[in-house]
């Protein structure tokens, strides 16, 4: 990346890094955009609420927003390539299902335990990566290997996980989570919490370190930021976000199978969504997931071409639009502003 790229990607961070008043203004902008997205999404069931299939697509869209926010935090903010997004969510889903159904633990408690397990594993990855000073590629390979091993364990431990056929989740079946519309709002609530959490994290001292980390790791280390600590924070928090979303999904859907959490079905689409929306940008995951979920529905008749489409998008995005939609808009806007300023002079 050239310096210009870095500047335009971190356009907001430059503002945030400034005086406290500026920070408050930009927080206000961020919270407003979250509110707008929240209102729009909250109104969605008015149009599609009576269709069970549309609602379930919308819920799965929100699930992917959750995944994408977590990935955006881990990769976008601290540069750790976690290729175990699906696996960490799967850990949450399977753990919560097994703990509640097998051990008879109430499912809200089971979800919390499952989330804790995902936090532990996510933080574990970061801890290992930091301790062994793994670069992006090796972090990617280690987490990818975990993902594949997790998939194999799910397939192999039939008596516990149901193997390839999947697992019916009993816990939660007699609650509102299995109705048509309420789970949509539960997931929407989760998305809003994640988004607000993302903003709060980034406007705290942790966020300052995150941005320094992303912009220039060396410089961050030189200015005395404890790089490794913040990486581990991101791994723990991101892992927890994934685990919680996965666990909630298990109880809402009532059925989980290994295919729901594979690298190919989760990690690659999440990467696409985040990069499409704009890596490291607050609303990137929302825009990316909305776009791909909508396109998935519009092009449902061509679902047999889905892999080809995703592969093509991946190539096109990374070659032509590496900063995503938001990034392109922002540099377009700042380009305009710069031109206007120069013409004024």
């Amino acid at each position: 990346m050239t310096t210009e790229d870095v500047n335009s990607v971190s356009g907001t961070s430059g503002v945030l890094r400034g005086r406290r008043k500026d920070r408050r203004v930009s927080n206000l902008v961020a919270l407003t955009s979250i509110a707008v997205a929240g209102i729009v999404l909250a109104l969605l069931p008015i149009w599609i609420g009576d269709s069970r299939s549309h609602m379930s697509v919308a819920i799965s869209g929100l699930l992917f927003v959750c995944y994408a926010i977590a990935f955006n935090l881990i990769f976008g903010s601290t540069g750790q390539l976690f290729l175990a997004v699906g696996a960490l969510a799967g850990v949450g889903a399977y753990a919560s299902a097994i703990i509640s159904d097998r051990l008879g633990v109430p499912f809200p408690l089971a979800m919390m335990l499952a989330t804790g397990l995902s936090m532990l594993i996510g933080g574990g990855f970061s801890w290992i990566a930091v301790r062994r000073s793994l670069d992006i590629i090796f972090t990617g390979i280690v987490t990818l290997v975990f993902s594949l091993a997790f998939d194999n364990i799910l397939l192999g431990q039939r008596d516990l996980t149901g193997g390839e056929t999947g697992l019916v989740v009993e816990a939660g079946s007699d609650t509102f989570l299995r109705q048509q519309i309420p789970p949509y709002y539960v997931f929407l609530g989760l998305v809003l919490i994640y988004l607000v959490g993302y903003v709060l994290l980034h406007s705290s001292h942790i966020g300052w370190a995150f941005r320094a980390l992303r912009d220039d790791r060396m410089a961050a280390e030189l200015t005395g930021i404890d790089v490794s600590r913040y990486r581990i924070y991101a791994g723990v928090i991101g892992g927890g976000m994934l685990g919680l979303a996965g666990a909630l999904w298990a109880h809402v859907e009532g059925f989980i199978s290994p295919a729901t959490f594979t690298f190919i079905h989760v990690d690659v689409p999440v990467l696409l969504m985040v990069v499409f929306g704009g890596l490291g940008m607050l609303m990137g995951p929302v825009i990316g997931s909305a776009f791909f979920t909508y396109m998935g529905e519009v092009l449902a008749a061509f679902s047999h071409l889905r892999l080809i489409g995703e592969g093509t998008m991946l190539i096109v995005l990374f070659l032509l639009l590496p900063k995503g939609i938001l990034g392109a808009l922002r540099s377009g806007a700042s380009g305009l502003r710069r031109r206007r300023q120069t013409s004024k002079r």
Partner: peptide, 10 residues
């Protein structure tokens, strides 16, 4: 890595 994942998908 990312571009060749794309090719693999295609």
């Amino acid at each position: 890595l990312i571009l060749t994942i794309g090719v693999a998908f295609i």
